[in-house]
């Protein structure tokens, strides 16, 4: 279970570029829950995922994963339990190295990298078997540089790598956004399949309301660094795309109004 309390982050504090990307974030994600984060551009979705992954230290608050406080852990240490797929299909793999070599690193995620041969025959067999399940024909190209693959293929492999060792938490940051529609659908389907099969706890940022309504068990709505609305298991069942859009519309209209004016209007019409 992921437990976030009072998480806050301000970039460039005290300068003209100051941005408060996260304020007072409280979030609980139960084990086996697949949650989607939606929100406007710049609302802090990626920042939230980065904070959980440990890309930077938060200014305040705490993050607990599976009962362990990971707030102070460096990124590489958290990675032993957290799988990640980035928005950029090139960010999750080392382009010049072969498919097999990339996967081998993921096979030992969180373990010591030893002085044994990396792509041993046993590892290769295991890799071939699991890559075949992607149905992309990549099992015959294990020695090709991963940089020669398409974005969709690389993203599918990154997803496979992120879940090779069952992660306690899977973080997906708009991982289908940079792909063409067909690849995006393919990777989205693969994501759903893996998460369901392995019963993973996952946090996925998406811009697609459709996806947010269809795939996950839980929806988190963010706006200006805050969580403004959550649809948990019960409410989620009945939620429609229009409801989400309405919720966003409400905050957008509220933001346009000065709080004092809003109070005045509220009193007038009450």
């Amino acid at each position: 279970m992921l437990k976030i309390r009072n998480l806050a982050k301000t970039f460039f504090p005290g300068t003209a570029n100051e941005v408060t990307a996260l304020r007072d974030i409280d979030l609980d994600i139960e084990d086996g829950c697949f949650a989607a984060i939606i929100g406007t551009n710049g609302s802090g979705k990626s920042t939230l995922l980065n904070a959980v992954a440990g890309a930077f230290q938060a200014d305040a608050g705490s993050i607990e994963l599976a009962g362990v406080d990971i707030t102070g852990q460096p990124e590489y240490r958290r990675a032993g339990q957290i799988g990640r797929v980035f928005q950029n299909p090139f960010a999750g793999t080392a382009a010049g190295m072969s498919i097999a070599e990339n996967i081998v690193l993921a096979m030992r995620r969180g373990q010591r990298q030893g002085l044994r041969r990396a792509v041993s025959r046993k590892a290769r067999e295991e890799i071939r078997a699991r890559v075949r399940t992607l149905n992309m024909g990549l099992e015959d190209r294990l020695d090709n540089p991963i940089g020669t693959l398409s974005g969709g293929q690389r993203q599918a492999l990154t997803l496979l790598m992120a879940t090779w060792q069952r992660p306690k938490l899977l973080l997906l940051d708009e991982h289908t956004a940079a792909l063409d529609p067909k690849s995006a659908a393919q990777v989205a389907a693969l994501t759903k399949e893996i998460i369901e099969r392995e019963n993973l706890t996952a946090l996925m940022v998406t811009h697609s309301m459709q996806q947010a309504v269809q795939l996950p068990d839980h929806i988190v709505m963010m706006h200006q660094g805050r969580i403004i609305e959550q649809y948990g298991a019960q409410r989620k069942a009945s939620v429609r795309v229009a409801d989400l859009l309405n919720a966003f519309d409400r905050v957008r209209r509220r933001d346009l109004l000065d709080p004092d004016v809003a109070a005045l209007l509220a009193r007038q019409y009450a």
Partner: peptide
């Protein structure tokens, strides 16, 4: 020989993509 070991592979990946290496739990 070394560069083909698990450790050596991680070292090569470090030069190519430190972000990815960190995501695999390796101290780049």
């Amino acid at each position: 020989r070394f560069l083909l070991t698990q450790f050596g592979t991680a070292m090569r990946a470090t030069g190519e993509n430190p972000q990815m290496v960190r995501a695999q739990g390796i101290n780049n």
